[in-house]
Simulated scan of single mutants.
Amino acid sequence: MSATHPDTSPDDGEALDPQQLGAYFVLMEAVSLLQHQVEQQLRAEGDLSYVQFQLLARLADAQGPLTMTQLADGVVYSRSGLTYQAGLLEKAGLITRAPGRDDERATLVTITDDGMALFGRVLPGHVQGVRRLLFDPMSDDNLHHLGDIMTRVRDHMRAQPPRSAAPRKRRTPPAAPTAP
């Protein structure tokens, strides 16, 4: 039910109420400010984009290679964008890519020793920045509530099929000209 019209559902395209709109804008501003600072630190200390850092972090935490699909679902990034970013990391010697053992259509990605070393070098500054910007102004109770809220929101969003599960758009060939 909508706060302004009890007979309408929140999915009917009705405008957000002032409290919803305010919360949305504050969330988006905070995320943008945090991401900007994180990206600045990653560029300065490792010449990495945020997405590249996410890829290295996921691979560093994995117990072996991950597929490109697993990485795309984990970092919520397009297939083509992820392929491009992985290509840059591979060219820099930070990851390797190889065909899957059981499924040659799958591409397995592994972090290299150089990739682990770079990740280890940028991680302390990343943690320090996140702690200073995000966690320092919060009490333990605030942190607990934020974690609960964001977990609920994330789980709700993740209930939808991952982007990598969506069928790829196929180009439709142009129609053949018809005879007069």
Results as ranks from 00 to 15, higher is better:
residue 169 K to H: 14
residue 55 L to V: 14
residue 8 T to S: 10
residue 45 E to K: 12
residue 37 Q to K: 12
residue 149 I to H: 10
residue 144 H to Y: 11
residue 42 L to A: 02
residue 20 Q to E: 14
residue 15 A to F: 09
residue 53 F to K: 07
residue 6 P to N: 04
residue 25 F to I: 01
residue 49 S to F: 10
residue 108 L to H: 11
residue 85 Q to H: 13
residue 21 L to H: 09
residue 107 T to F: 03
residue 39 E to L: 00
residue 52 Q to I: 07
residue 85 Q to S: 13
residue 157 M to W: 09
residue 54 Q to G: 14
residue 179 A to G: 10
residue 48 L to S: 06
residue 60 A to C: 06
residue 111 I to H: 00
residue 55 L to I: 15
residue 32 S to L: 06
residue 151 T to C: 13
residue 113 D to S: 10
residue 59 L to A: 06
residue 100 G to S: 02
residue 39 E to H: 03
residue 51 V to M: 09
residue 53 F to Y: 12
residue 130 V to L: 11
residue 37 Q to V: 02
residue 65 P to N: 05
residue 80 S to F: 11
residue 34 L to P: 01
residue 114 D to A: 15
residue 35 Q to I: 00
residue 50 Y to E: 11
residue 129 G to P: 00
residue 3 A to H: 11
residue 2 S to F: 08
residue 175 A to F: 00
residue 112 T to S: 12
residue 27 L to S: 08
residue 94 L to E: 02
residue 172 T to G: 11
residue 177 P to C: 03
residue 13 G to Y: 06
residue 87 G to V: 01
residue 94 L to G: 04
residue 180 P to Q: 12
residue 66 L to P: 02
residue 120 G to A: 04
residue 2 S to Y: 07
residue 132 R to V: 00
residue 122 V to I: 06
residue 99 P to G: 04
residue 87 G to A: 03
residue 128 Q to D: 11
residue 122 V to G: 01
residue 9 S to E: 10
residue 86 A to Q: 05
residue 29 E to T: 09
residue 20 Q to H: 02
residue 35 Q to K: 11
residue 103 D to Y: 02
residue 33 L to Y: 02
residue 1 M to P: 15
residue 43 R to C: 01
residue 165 A to K: 13
residue 10 P to N: 04
residue 125 G to H: 14
residue 126 H to L: 14
residue 128 Q to N: 08
residue 93 G to N: 07
residue 97 R to Y: 03
residue 140 D to W: 06
residue 163 R to I: 11
residue 143 L to N: 02
residue 95 I to C: 01
residue 98 A to M: 09
residue 63 Q to W: 10
residue 88 L to E: 12
residue 75 V to G: 08
residue 100 G to C: 06
residue 47 D to V: 05
residue 68 M to N: 05
residue 11 D to S: 11
residue 150 M to N: 08
residue 146 L to T: 10
residue 111 I to A: 01
residue 139 S to P: 12
residue 161 P to V: 10
residue 64 G to Y: 08
residue 20 Q to G: 09
residue 119 F to G: 03
residue 58 R to D: 12
residue 36 H to F: 12
residue 44 A to D: 13
residue 156 H to Y: 11
residue 129 G to K: 05
residue 53 F to H: 12
residue 34 L to V: 09
residue 131 R to N: 08
residue 176 A to M: 08
residue 165 A to E: 15
residue 168 R to P: 04
residue 12 D to F: 00
residue 98 A to R: 15
residue 32 S to A: 13
residue 115 G to F: 01
residue 135 F to C: 06
residue 77 Y to N: 07
residue 99 P to N: 04
residue 79 R to N: 06
residue 170 R to K: 15
residue 177 P to M: 07
residue 122 V to D: 03
residue 76 V to Q: 15
residue 138 M to C: 14
residue 92 A to C: 06
residue 44 A to E: 14
residue 30 A to M: 08
residue 73 D to R: 08
residue 150 M to W: 10
residue 92 A to K: 13
residue 28 M to G: 02
residue 147 G to I: 05
residue 67 T to E: 05
residue 160 Q to P: 04
residue 22 G to Q: 07
residue 128 Q to Y: 05
residue 163 R to V: 11
residue 32 S to D: 06
residue 25 F to K: 03
residue 121 R to D: 07
residue 81 G to I: 09
residue 33 L to A: 07
residue 121 R to Q: 13
residue 69 T to C: 05
residue 23 A to W: 02
residue 93 G to D: 06
residue 13 G to L: 10
residue 113 D to C: 00
residue 101 R to W: 05
residue 172 T to N: 14
residue 147 G to N: 14
residue 50 Y to C: 09
residue 74 G to I: 09
residue 27 L to P: 03
residue 173 P to Y: 03
residue 164 S to A: 12
residue 51 V to K: 07
residue 63 Q to V: 10
